[in-house]
Write a protein that binds this DNA or RNA. Structure first.
Lengths: 145, 145
DNA sequence: GACATATGTAACCATCGATGTTACTATCCG
DNA sequence: CGGATAGTAACATCGATGGTTACATATGTC
């Protein structure tokens, strides 16, 4: 995946909004739960709003709400909303094209990364925000009801 | 995956060694193909040697060779040899445990990341170094032989 | 044995990306 | 009006990564 925490924090944000689905939640409250600065939260929410996963309300008594039910949001939706296109290190990778290996390796690696990425995204698609919410509610010790 | 180029460069290195399988190749020659410093190459080769994918020969006429045939090395072997354990951003993610969401979200996210990682690694396991080598030899334009 | 050629690795530096922070504007509710 | 909130630009900080130099160690060739 990537080395940043955008996806992790974003899932946290949306899980919080699912948990507090009855009202508009201000960024400062979410920031308290994530333990970071409200601006960091608003930056991520900006991307989530643009991708229509969340609705924003300005002004007093404003805040954020889920734009859809939690079972209609997959973790892949979240991932694609907040993660930049993965470079897989190919940006800093500029091999010597005069070498027979260096000339073609980039193309081959792009194919490999594409498959690996697809494998990962397929798993994210299977998990919905409602699954995350259910796990948050579950009682920890023991599994027998 | 990760933002660094270790995996991409390492696949290049091993593809080069597969291409020049008949002799021991010095790090400076590989560095020329990758277009970087020989020390960078040796650092990665150090990890590859430790994981028994490559054999190193010191001294004059020394260099590096594949330790096994190219069809006995998967890209997952390479990935695990040179990539540090993926953090998925969880290192910088320290939510407020006094919040019901913050208290459990880490555990839930670890499960999600574990599945996503497994999906990606399953694809890397399917590709062998010999597949990469074959694609390097393939003629570019057109697919009809 | 001397020497040239390699690896192995530590140490340091420059650069870049991600995150945190401040500050300000625009907007909305009461 | 006035308080609360989103939206966003600008800047600072920090860590990871990659590049570079330096040097010790090992080895084949003469």
């Amino acid at each position: 995946m990537s080395a940043n925490s955008r996806f992790a924090v974003s899932v946290h944000i949306l899980a919080y909004l699912a948990y507090e689905h009855a009202r508009a939640v201000p960024s400062a409250e979410i920031a308290s739960s994530v333990d970071t600065n409200p601006v960091v939260i608003r930056r991520l929410l900006s991307a989530l709003v643009k991708n229509q996963l969340v609705e924003a309300y300005k002004g007093a008594a404003g805040g954020f709400r889920l734009a859809r039910p939690a079972n209609a949001i997959s973790l892949l939706d979240i991932y694609r909303a907040v993660e930049p296109a993965p470079s897989h290190g190919m940006n800093r990778f500029t091999p010597n094209h005069r070498c027979p290996v260096g000339a073609k390796i980039e193309e081959v690696l792009l194919g490999v990364f594409s498959k690996a990425q697809a494998g990962m995204e397929a798993e994210l698609l299977r998990v919905r925000l409602s699954d995350v919410e259910r796990q948050l509610h579950a009682v920890c010790p023991g599994r027998r009801t």
